[in-house]
Nucleic acid binder design. Structure first.
Length: 196
DNA sequence: GCTACGATGACCT
DNA sequence: GGTCATCGTAGCA
């Protein structure tokens, strides 16, 4: 079994696009009702206030996106479509609005609890195959907004060795602005990715 | 105060 | 591939 050690704060200080790539293969670990949930990240999208009109921080800081302007390595969790939550890893120095959206993960352990958290999932592939599904399986909502990764309830741990050449990049999904930016990164031909 | 809409998912055809 | 549930924000009056 791979180590459970949290990644150091310096990991989150790399530029947003670089961090987005680096997040592919990392493991997200969360303690939920005493059960350890673990999954590896297989799909992400980067968002940055500078020149990215799809970024929630593009128009400046508000109560909703405040966590994006906070220190790197914290969570930005937002509510969308009246019923879903999505989680981001905050990047860049405090004062800059940028983050990486976790779009899909491959469940590794605690699958029983994930299914309990997300009853509509028909199989383990469907537990974390989409940003809102990740939050549902991991029981992440607004209460986690602004929380640090590396605390005792939730943290990121080292790689599950995905070769760099297996990481693909392309246009982000579900946005209607700045669609030209190729800021989505995913593990090629991975069945847990929302779209290949 | 009012209103449009969104970094989605479930279900239908 | 299409529809729609459901509500917090932001933008505007």
């Amino acid at each position: 079994m791979t180590p459970r050690l949290a990644l150091p704060p310096t990991f989150y200080q790399q530029p947003t696009l670089q961090l987005a790539r680096a997040l592919i293969g990392k493991r997200l670990i969360r303690i939920c009702n005493g059960v350890e949930l673990e999954a590896r990240i297989v799909e992400v999208e980067a968002y940055h206030q500078d020149g990215d009109r799809a970024c929630h921080a593009y128009a400046g800081k508000t109560a909703r996106n405040a966590a994006m302007f906070g220190p790197a390595g914290h969570l930005y969790v937002y509510f969308i479509y009246g019923m879903h939550y999505c989680m981001n890893v905050v990047s860049e120095a405090a004062g800059t609005g940028a983050a990486v959206l976790i779009r899909a993960m491959e469940p590794l352990s605690g699958l029983e609890t994930m299914h309990a958290n997300r009853p509509s999932a028909k199989d383990h592939y469907d537990l974390c195959r989409g940003p809102a599904k990740c939050c549902q399986s991991f029981a992440i909502d607004k209460k986690m907004d602004g929380q640090p990764l590396g605390g005792k309830n939730i943290w990121l741990a080292s790689d599950t060795s995905i070769p760099t050449q297996e990481i693909r990049e392309g246009a982000r999904i579900g946005i209607s602005k700045s669609e030209d930016l190729l800021w989505r990164f995913w593990h090629d031909r991975n069945a847990y990715v929302s779209r290949n």
